[in-house]
Each structure stands twice: as structure tokens, then as C-alpha cells.
């Protein structure tokens, strides 16, 4: 999107700014729910491979916990690096 176009947003009446904020909220909710679904899918795939029981076994449960924690830490780190690059703060190696 061109910046001049974003500039036009300032000219929108108050009501439209609220509408825009609501849209952003909605996108963030959708994104969180998708992330949650994707995280469940990944940790299930990596940690659960036997189907002799209906309930999660101890080692599967601890695998899922570590998987989810590790992914969240990873995701936060990626978010920081991504933000730096977006701000043009990246340096070469």
C-alpha cells in the first residue's frame, strides 16, 4: 500500500477510524487463533506417534509442553528480528 494512501486515513472521520481499529482487532484475533491451531498441529505431529491409548502418555505430554514453549520462544525471537529488519536496523555479517 502506498504511503500517500495511508495518509488519507487521517482524513477519515472518527467513525471510520474506529472501524479501522476494529478491523485490526479482528485480524489479530484471527491470527492468534490460527497460530494456536498451527502450534497444536505441529506439536501433535512431532510428539504423538502411537495410538494404543486414548489419553496422552506422560512422555508425550512433556514433549508437547517443551514443543509449545520452544515454539513460543522461537516465535518471539523471530518477531524481534523481523521488527528490526522492518525498521531497516539490520546490519550485514
Amino acid at each position: 500500500m502506498d504511503k500517500s494512501m495511508l495518509g488519507d486515513l487521517d482524513n477519515l472521520p472518527e467513525e471510520d477510524k474506529l472501524k479501522m481499529a476494529a478491523m485490526i482487532d479482528q485480524l489479530q484475533i484471527r491470527d492468534s487463533l490460527r497460530m494456536y491451531n498451527a502450534l497444536v498441529e505441529r506439536c501433535f505431529n512431532d510428539c504423538v506417534d502411537t495410538f494404543k491409548h486414548k489419553s496422552l502418555q506422560k512422555q508425550e505430554e512433556s514433549c508437547v509442553r517443551r514443543c509449545a514453549e520452544k515454539f513460543l520462544k522461537h516465535s518471539m525471537r523471530v518477531g524481534m528480528r523481523f521488527a528490526e529488519l522492518n525498521q531497516g536496523a539490520a546490519t550485514q555479517d
Partner: peptide
């Protein structure tokens, strides 16, 4: 099991 994992991750 998928259901349990969904709940477990939800808690975390």
C-alpha cells in the same frame, strides 16, 4: 489425543 493436545496447549 489431538483433543488433549489442544487443551494442553490452550493451558500453556
Amino acid at each position: 489425543k489431538y483433543w488433549h493436545v489442544t487443551n494442553l496447549v490452550g493451558q500453556l
